[in-house]
Every structure is written in C-alpha cells, then in structure tokens.
Amino acid sequence: MKKKKKIFGIAGHYLVLGIISVFVLLPYYWMIVTAVKPTEEVMVSPSTLLPSRLEFSNFFKVWESIPLGTYMKNSLIVSVTVTALSVVLATLCGYSISRFIQRRAQKFSLVLMLCTQLIPGIVTMVSLYFIVYNLGFSNTYTGIVIAYVAWAVPFCTLMIKGYFDAAIPREIEESARVDGCSQIRTFFDICLPISVPGIISTAIFAFILAWNEYMWASILLSGDKMKPVSVGIYDFIGQYGANTKMALTMTAGIFITLPAVIIFGFLQKHLISGLSAGAVKG
C-alpha cells in the first residue's frame, strides 16, 4: 500500500516537471520546427505541428539574406571586451570590499554598487546618449563598451564579493601577510588562483548580459557595419514585418541563441555555485 503511494508520488513528480518543461521548451521547439519546415508549409494557417519533411536550406540562406556574420562578429568583439573589463574591475573592487569593509571607501563603494543596480537603465540612457555623442563615441565600440561595463560592474562586484566572503578563507591570506607578502601579491598569488570558479561565474554573467542586450545598443551602435546581432535582427524583422521572413528569422534566432547556451552549458555549474555563494549570505 505504502509502496504504491510512493510510485504515484514519483510519477506525479515527473508529470509536473514534464508539464513545466513543455512551457519552457515550447519557444525552442517552434523555433526549430519553423526553421526546418519546407517553405510552403511555414505560411499555412492554422499551422501544422510537425514538418512533413525536413528542409535545411534556411541554415545556409540565412547567412546570405542577413549579414549575420558581421553582426555576430560585432557582438563578439563587444561582449568579450566587456567581459574582460568587467571581470577585472569587479574582481579588484569586490576583493577590496570583501576584505576591508571596515574602511570608509569600501563601505561607500558597496553602497554605491547596491544603489546603482536600482537605477533604471533608461534614466541613465537619456543623457548618456548626449555624453557619448559629445565625446565622439557614438557608433563606436568604445561608446557601447563603456556603457555596458558601467552597467555590468555593480552586479559583478557584488557577486564576486559574495564569493570572496563565503568561499575563500581569510586565514591563508593573513598568514601570507605575516610572512611579509605585499597586499597586491597576496591578492594575485594567493587569493586569485583559488577563486577561479567565482571569477568564471562573474564572467559568464557579464558575457550574457552584453550578448543579449538590445536597448542601449539600438541607441549607441546603430550604424550598419557596427550593429550587434540583437539590433541587426530587430531591424531585419522591422524591415520585412514579423511574418514574411519568419523562417529565416527563426533560423537566425537559433544561431544567436547557441553561443550563449553553449557557454552556459559548459559553465553552468560554476555560475550556480558562484551565484549561490553570494546569494546565501544575502
């Protein structure tokens, strides 16, 4: 009797997870199905749930119809630069806050990072646009990189600070200090090598932020040759309407989702442990 109940319980557990999976996966399913449907089936209404045969021509056509390669190159340049800069700034600052929180500058920086996270991005943008324009940085990578870094640094700093607080014991550093090791060498030689998981999770966070962003890029980086994928695809949809080039847009969607998902797939364990180390402490 008890065993029967348990089996039902487990079946129910997986049934619920299955239903949630349908909700989570529905967009991906439709994206892939639309991309591989034969051209004449895409525009049938009501839509068929399965393609009658698979056609992969969209996967080649999309590179000719949309300058996807250029867009992806732009996105990659911006995202990688932003990731590198954000991680360096956030790690230095997060370490300093984590280890010297009793000092005034560190307290101030922590409050600063907490506060700026709460400012709506669009408020900053209204006048940042003029500042970037006046500095001659509109439509350059420099302009967008500056904007993204300042935007990513607060959360990254808090994340890596949480990691230093929770996962890296101070005792090792203190004994190094007693042995006469300078502050900067303690950080680079003792602390940094054992903090790699936390740093990786911060890096993924910054990369995904920059790769997925649309709003600021649409303002600061709209020149045809400079556009990142998000702006490029948005303009492509705008140019032809949502429906006419649906299959091509879906295919492009697959290509721009893949980099983030792949990076994330490899490193998600670090991301979760890095986030939770900071999160659990509050």
Binding site: V88, L89, A90, L92, C93, Y95, S96, I97, A105, Q106, F108, S109, L112, M113, T116, I119, T124, L128, I146, A147, V149, A150, W151, V153, P154, T157, F187
Partner: peptide, 14 residues
C-alpha cells in the same frame, strides 16, 4: 583596487 570600478560607475551611471 576599488578606484577603477567605483570611478567608472560614478562617471557612467551616477
């Protein structure tokens, strides 16, 4: 160590 991050946030966000 905290100057670069704090300065960039002050200049570009605040």
């Amino acid at each position: 160590m905290l100057v670069p991050a704090a300065a960039s946030v002050l200049l570009v966000s605040v």
